[in-house]
Write a protein that binds this DNA or RNA. Sequence first.
DNA 1: CACTATTTGTACGTATGTATT
DNA 2: GAATACATACGTACAAATAGT
Lengths: 249, 249
Amino acid sequence: MKFEPVTTVRAYERVVEQIEHAVLTGRLAPGTRLPSERELMAQFEVSRSTVREALRVLQAAGVVRSRAGDPRGPEVLPPSPTTLRKSIRRLAQSAHIGLAELLQFRMLLESSAYRLAAHLRTEDQLAQMELALRRMRDHLDTDTTDDGAFSQADVEFHDAVAQATQNPLVVACGEVVRGVAMELIENKLAHADDRRDLREKIVAHHAEMLDAVREGASERAGTLACQALYDYYAEYIPESQRALLAPLL
Amino acid sequence: MKFEPVTTVRAYERVVEQIEHAVLTGRLAPGTRLPSERELMAQFEVSRSTVREALRVLQAAGVVRSRAGDPRGPEVLPPSPTTLRKSIRRLAQSAHIGLAELLQFRMLLESSAYRLAAHLRTEDQLAQMELALRRMRDHLDTDTTDDGAFSQADVEFHDAVAQATQNPLVVACGEVVRGVAMELIENKLAHADDRRDLREKIVAHHAEMLDAVREGASERAGTLACQALYDYYAEYIPESQRALLAPLL
DNA sequence: CACTATTTGTACGTATGTATT
DNA sequence: GAATACATACGTACAAATAGT
């Protein structure tokens, strides 16, 4: 017989466990309200501080949200990749991960996403991508006020591709890595986003990839996506590390 | 001139921000100790509850750990994928992500890992993989007491591959997804791990992949990894969803 | 080894700002 | 606008746990 080492489990952790389990098993659906803090402290038979610490942890985990003065109590949130994003960003910024690794990971994810999309896309999604691409063409010269109609169309295109992959994990990781990478280079990048020729290149790339996705040419779509990322960002990677990226092309 | 909408930011969040920023920028190295709660409440000029709520959030995020009665104060933890694992697990168990998506993601990650390893592996890492494989062969018949010497050798093999990829993000995500997937099927899976024929199949697969990695045949290594995963786990996926996996083979 | 000082964990009371009805 | 219920934040107090003497 073997015994497990015992671990003193804090009161607030037990509270977290119970609530989280209720949410995860669906006994507490998104949108429903938790009892008020005073009610919770009565039900769990703990003090207010304990309840609050538990709620803080759950809030940080994206499970619930509590607003000051809301008489309906803390709200159970729908699952969202926000926490995933924070986790990956933390891991990335912990200096163990550089731009090269990040870009490599992104190339990997995006190429896979396009390969999947080429296989699984519906006519509807294809139409959505075409629409987004047309809108990008229309806004080639629109000024970048109001967050840029061009960028917005770009996002729409990516959303359509994301829908087509049918895998939220791939999509979420891709988005996250994209965001983190952008943050890392945004100082070096002198808002090149509003240079017209760059926009034209982007549109051309997207058009190529859309063709590949339409024809179901998954290999081509994947390599195109990789190549595009490499073309855009390789200049920000030290030459010594570019060898890491080559294997994916 | 445009104004940003203001958002009431809680006191504990400001505390979290400051500490987290200090850790992320390296001003607080892993292993160092934070000031005690009473000290912190003096420095931030907030109450102890506020400090504690902040510490709870940071602890849940895997940034620090505080133990009751430790006069040295909360410990700054080294970056680890534990939180990433929890985030992915939460997202996976929230019913939006099924075993199929998880397996698809894992196939994608592992095949990429092997492709990278085939390109970047050093002789040293190759030797490590060979050693691990030999140990797996040696323990083909060892009983599964003490956590299984066979499984341990298996893990060593994967570690060597992970080292070769040189991308901690790919490795961490792979590990996490592997863990979550295992949890999801572990009820269905009647500890098949100790059936001898399965072990032989695993060894054979590993040997094939090692060959591919040795020869630098990245494409072959990648497809082998995918195929192996599909062979093992496809039976646990509803037939209707297997179409999602096929595009990767 | 026991003791002590310090720190964390928990509890309770109170004041204040806020969202809902 | 008033009333109400709530979350937020502060302060104090005591128990439990830990490290170092």
